[in-house]
Amino acid sequence: MQKVSADPEEACLVWCQKRNGGTKSRGWTFPDGTVCQTRRSRYGKSSYCINGRCEDFICDSYNEVAFIQMSELCPADRNDNEVTWRTGLRSRQNTIKWKSASGCHFNCISPGTGIRLVMSKGKYAKSSIQLCQPDQFGCGRIKSPFQHASMICGKYKERVRRLSGLGMQISPAVEDPDRPCRVACQDENISHRFYLVNGEEGWFPFGTDCSRSTSDKKAYCISGKCLEFGSDDTPVSESEFTLPLLSRNKRSLHNNNTKIITKLNQQQLEQIIHELN
């Protein structure tokens, strides 16, 4: 028999059932190409035994992984046959083919994503950043934005009397669309009053989800900014936010459908890439 195991080698071992129950193996392995499954395998991923190890075969048009799934079994690349665009920022009409230029970095925060650097293919090489699927198993522990913020605010409480020690991720505001990417520390006596932490220490780690209630959008914190990501998972040059919750001083002036437009140009994007590097 074959087992589903956390260990990729165990998943390709031939196991024999003993008469009195239990299983044992003599170290024989299933031949290359035998379907296998490890507990780490995600649903829908194809895994096969290769040299006695259960290996994941992944759809990757850039041939960067060791075991590549047959293209016939992969979703069609909708970027095929499209023209190359000069800027690294996504346009609605044109899409760029990206090639990864770094590994997938994940800050072990959930909800959140992995981020990698990418380069465009073609004559006008541009760099950008792209969302990527992180390896959750690389994290000792996953933190929520609340836990991360409270860790920062707990440190500040030792020095600043007025703080409760709890921190939060708060909603964007017209005057500050990037506010969900900054750590806000709670006042000790007034529970709805918060103070923002200045500087890089006050930024949520890159990849922290900042889409909040706008579930149809992909938005993540990068260098203290809340960037929206498009269909090719790179930042869009212009994004529109609907603010579900406004700060108290603005509530009388705006209704719940207030929309704000944030823009990101290539120079700002390059500065972000430089900071991430």
Partner: peptide
Amino acid sequence: DIDLNNPIHVD
């Protein structure tokens, strides 16, 4: 550093 001069109120 923490910005104590510009408190934010949330509901």
